[in-house]
């Protein structure tokens, strides 16, 4: 799956090219389904989210700016955003109902492996310079879509402390990446 190929397909989708849309779906749906499943932790919800995500991709393809982000990251951002919106819109009582879905639970997920193996490149290096629990908070917020409250609960610290952690960590990260 070449970056250029995906980029080209998105461009063609922006011109209402249905064949390109079909090809784009074939090449990217597994990745985006992985994103939706990870954040929503429910197959049913993830499938529903995928419909909305690909409809957004069809509608917003013209906003893709080649060269800035990898096209797959642009698509993943749409999927992450939508999945997080769905999670945030849930009634509190619905939380955890589908927790029994056959997904790897928390703990060092594949992203940790990716960071360890250097796949995350400079970002991985810079995360490595943060305190471990703070780096984990950043990574799990991104990967799992946790809210401030969920992160605070998991780390057993007050919500405002978590907010401060993240704010400082993100400033440190940005400075490290710009160095």
């Amino acid at each position: 799956m070449s970056t250029e190929e995906i980029s080209d397909l998105i461009k063609r989708v922006s011109l209402r090219d249905r064949r390109a849309f079909s090809a784009l779906y074939d090449r990217t749906s597994a990745k985006l389904f992985g994103v939706c499943l990870r954040i929503l932790r429910s197959r049913a919800e993830a499938e529903e989210a995928m419909q909305e995500v690909y409809i957004k991709i069809w509608q917003r393809a013209d906003r893709y700016v080649p060269g800035r982000n990898s096209p797959i990251s642009w698509l993943a951002a749409i999927a992450r955003n939508h999945a997080i919106d769905v999670v945030r819109a849930r009634k509190p009582v619905a939380d955890g109902i589908d927790a029994a879905v056959d997904l790897p639970d928390d703990g060092p997920g594949p992203e940790q492996a990716a960071i360890m193996s250097g796949e995350a490149g400079r970002l991985g290096d810079c995360l490595g310079k943060l305190d471990q629990n703070k780096a984990e908070a950043v990574v799990s917020a991104y990967m799992e879509g946790y809210s401030y409250q969920e992160l605070a609960d998991r780390h057993a610290i007050p919500l405002n402390t978590m907010r401060t952690w993240l704010r400082r960590s993100l400033i440190q990260l940005r400075e490290c990446l710009e160095r």
Partner: peptide
Amino acid sequence: ETRLSPLDGGYEPVTPPPALKAAIEER
């Protein structure tokens, strides 16, 4: 998005059910 996008590598691909594509195209 650019700074954090390397983390996307951590998402494991999972093949969605085949009927999903048809549902999207129909919509």
